[in-house]
Write a protein that binds this DNA or RNA. Structure first.
Lengths: 187, 187
DNA sequence: CGCCGAGTTGAACTGAATCAAGAAACGTGG
DNA sequence: CCACGTTTCTTGATTCAGTTCAACTCGGCG
């Protein structure tokens, strides 16, 4: 929880009252490994902050499981496409490990941001952070080769390789499991 | 200008006073074709709304010109990575046609959003829209083949193919000019 | 006319996917 | 604590989508 608060404090000014307000709108939840948090076809109603564990977003493209996002400790995860549009998601979300999460419900989050000037601003800057994340990943996948993407991954997500099946990382990086295995072994 | 205002009105509530405030913070600028609006190494200080014309963002990867984004009429364009972090951009921005643009300066935009509760909210929802755009493009480039990406492009950007050199569209879609030429002719 | 940039087409090449076995690691029940 | 089946990872052979390199076409314009 300390890390969660720090994330917001780093973004903007968070007064003690607003901090309390924030904490009152979110819920601490625990799930065992391999729990489905969102099914395709449903609207994504929650954003999760990962306190402990690991979450994955994925979808089925031509019947194959493809990882869209991997969320380790201290990161926010959600099917943002559906979360913001309020339309059914084409993506699934699952836990890959036993998890402790902080759940941000859509309606409550909107209410939170609307409840004070300061929070509204934090919300805006929070979204800007999200834009930066996506922009970076977009550039990465647009311009870099499979080997470069792997290199960047192990640098930006140290330790995750050991915690997630290779196949999931491979599709996250836009390559097959075999290719990743070969890159990893130095061909 | 009407289209610009409509964009914001569609997002949230824009009172007449705030509308006036908004208009007073932006500047209408005109540039001839092939004008450089941002050079690599500089911080991107402006976001542009394209009233008329066409803007392109690009960078040099291994000495080659690669298009990152194409902004036609009624869209916002800027090197958001640099714009939000206030760090030097690795990207360039140029006009591809004579342009009429509305310039949103970083500091003024922040001031605008800070100047009222309503505008702060509009700013937040505006950023959320940006997230949606990036999320869509990320999925597109992550999961689809060259031919699929082309198909989606001509549907989402009708007419642009006729206005932009093929090489720029090709690199925007993550393929070579020759490949795009072949896809277009049906192999 | 003849040049020049933009687009097309062809042939050879290559990075990565696919298909197909194995090997290693893992977990569960006896 | 071992045995067995399942899942995960590696390795090899082949195929394929897309790149590279190079030549050629076309239309505009001095």
């Amino acid at each position: 929880m300390e890390n969660l608060l720090r994330t917001f404090r780093d973004i903007g000014n968070l007064s003690p009252e607003n901090e309390k307000l924030l904490l009152s709108t979110i819920e601490r939840v625990e799930y065992p490994s391999k729990t489905i948090l969102l099914e395709e076809g449903n609207v994504c109603n929650n954003l999760y902050f990962v306190e402990k564990g690991l979450i994955r977003i994925y979808l089925y493209k031509d019947g194959k499981d493809v990882t869209c996002w991997i969320g380790p400790e201290n990161e926010f995860v959600g099917a943002i496409g559906s979360f913001f549009t309020r339309e059914p998601s084409n993506k699934w979300i699952e836990t890959l490990e036993p998890c402790v999460l902080w759940k941000f419900e859509y309606a409550k989050l909107e209410e939170l941001f609307s409840s004070s000037r300061e929070l509204e601003k934090i919300g805006r800057l929070f979204s800007n952070q999200g834009i930066l994340l996506l922009d970076k990943r977009l550039d990465n996948i647009h311009f870099n080769t499979a080997a470069e993407r792997y290199e960047i991954f192990i640098n930006t997500h140290p330790g995750i390789l050991q915690r997630v099946p290779l196949s999931m990382i491979a599709s996250y990086l836009g390559m097959t499991q075999e290719t990743l295995s070969r890159i990893r072994s130095g061909r």
